[in-house]
Design a protein around this nucleic acid. Structure first.
Length: 420
DNA sequence: TCTGGGGTCCTAGGACCC
DNA sequence: TCTGGGGTCCTAGGACCC
């Protein structure tokens, strides 16, 4: 049997850990530039605030109902996520973190009749120990465990844990479950199934396998099998990321070249740091920037450039120099760029880097310098040492008006908080 | 006026091989 | 006039996830 633990309204719950006064009040967490709603408390959901809605569209409601807004604070969420995950990890032999707020774990070492009680205790322990409310679903496949966890979240009577163990439980759970809410069924698949007269998970599960495969191909067949109780989806995490992206939307569109170059250099440095943290190197860099897709009054423009490096590297200076070279080739003056990003691709293990016979770079020396620079950042905080090309001009290009302090990761914020 | 960010997997089609 | 078949690899784009 699988257990799936899912944190309830995760980002909002993180903010509430340090603001218990917000319990019972409508709270939302916003995306970058305070653009869209990405997490909602139950009270915010009850007001009809939808996932992903732009803030400006609900500003009236926010003001009228006193909805509390937070800019996203990922170092806080990452840190609380680590605490929740480490508590769960202690209870199991097999554990796979699926996202920042979800993990699957094995509970077969617990007798079947005690599994529910066991998980209920875990829910209580995490609430008390970390302050985050979670829900747990138990079933024989991951997709069914996800279904169970949604029931656990929805009905207080379950005390945070729901299991799908018997055939009767499975049928009943799927009969009351919308097909579009099933893990793996997105917008397109939902529409196709609706056209075939299918609206619940049970209706889909009762069709023959050939129907699922014919309409939705391999992923659809796997979802169908999982709903039948077969365990076919493997989410075992790859040891390394295969691509690393850093991208941002700007509060106001930018056309000035030097300002954009600064952004590109910083995106690239951020990617490169992730790359080194997993002891890997990248052989390709993809740089892009484009206008706002929501602007119908201006001509749309999308610049992109893919560079293949002669030797895979994780060196900041080298990656930034390639990224900026690519950007300069593709940049068009006068275009109002609203979003830009850097993607590292063709990622391999650091130890698998193939040297180039004609390489003129002293890579050992570069590596020592890079290690020293990373070490300084680790000790004294991010961006303690940066390259000239990353130097921030005084211009503010992002908006975060509602950011909470870095309670768990930055001592300066804690001191400020105490002073207040 | 204002609309997020970071991933993975699958498939179809083109290029290329013999 | 008539011009094969089968395989692999790579890439771009779509769909999905949180």
């Amino acid at each position: 049997m699988y257990a799936l633990a899912d944190c309830n309204n995760f980002f909002v719950s993180c903010e509430r850990v340090f603001r218990p006064d917000l319990e019972g009040r409508p709270v939302v967490v916003l995306s970058g530039n305070d653009g869209c709603v990405v997490s909602r408390s139950n009270e915010a959901k009850a007001l009809g605030i939808k996932m992903g809605v732009p803030l400006y569209q609900i500003q009236g409601l926010v003001d009228k109902e006193g909805v509390v807004c937070f800019s996203s604070n990922f170092s806080l969420y990452g840190d609380l996520s680590d605490r929740v995950m480490s508590m769960i990890r202690r209870h199991t032999s097999r554990f796979e973190q699926y996202s920042i707020d979800e993990c699957f774990f094995n509970i077969d070492h617990i007798p079947a009749e005690e599994q529910k009680r066991y998980c209920e205790q875990l829910v209580k322990d995490i609430r008390r120990g970390v302050g985050i409310p979670i829900s747990i679903g138990i079933a024989s496949s991951k997709t069914l465990a996800k279904v169970a966890s949604k029931y656990a979240k929805k009905y207080a009577g379950y005390h945070g844990v729901c299991e799908i163990r018997t055939e009767e439980q499975r049928q009943k759970a799927l009969a009351g479950f919308e097909i579009g809410d099933v893990w793996g069924i997105g917008r397109k698949a939902k529409a196709k199934l609706a056209a075939a007269g299918i609206t619940t998970a049970l209706q889909f599960a009762e069709r023959p396998a050939t129907f699922a495969q014919g309409l939705l191909h391999k992923p659809g067949l796997m979802t169908w099998q999982e709903l039948g109780g077969q365990d076919v989806i493997d989410i075992t995490q790859l040891p390394m990321k295969q691509s690393i992206t850093t991208s941002r939307t700007f509060a106001t569109a930018i056309s000035e070249q030097t300002l954009l170059e600064e952004q590109i250099a910083n995106f690239c440095a951020h990617c490169a740091r992730q790359l080194r943290l997993q002891q890997s190197a990248a052989q390709q860099i993809y740089v892009y920037a484009h206008t706002s897709a929501f602007r119908t009054d201006i001509e749309q423009h999308y610049l992109s450039e893919l560079v293949t490096l002669p030797v895979a590297t994780s060196n900041n200076q080298e990656l930034i120099s390639y990224a900026l070279g690519a950007f300069r080739r593709a940049y068009r003056p006068g275009v109002l760029y609203k979003k830009a990003g850097v993607v590292l691709l063709k990622i391999i293990k650091e130890t698998d880097v193939m040297p180039d016979l004609f390489d003129t770079q002293d890579r050992e020396k570069d590596k020592r310098l890079q290690r020293a620079l990373d070490h300084i950042d680790d000790r004294h905080g991010k961006r303690s040492v940066i390259l000239g090309s990353q130097l921030s001009s005084s211009q503010q290009v992002y908006k975060t008006e509602h950011k909470s302090p870095l309670y768990t990761t930055d001592i300066r914020d804690v001191i400020t908080l105490k002073a207040e």
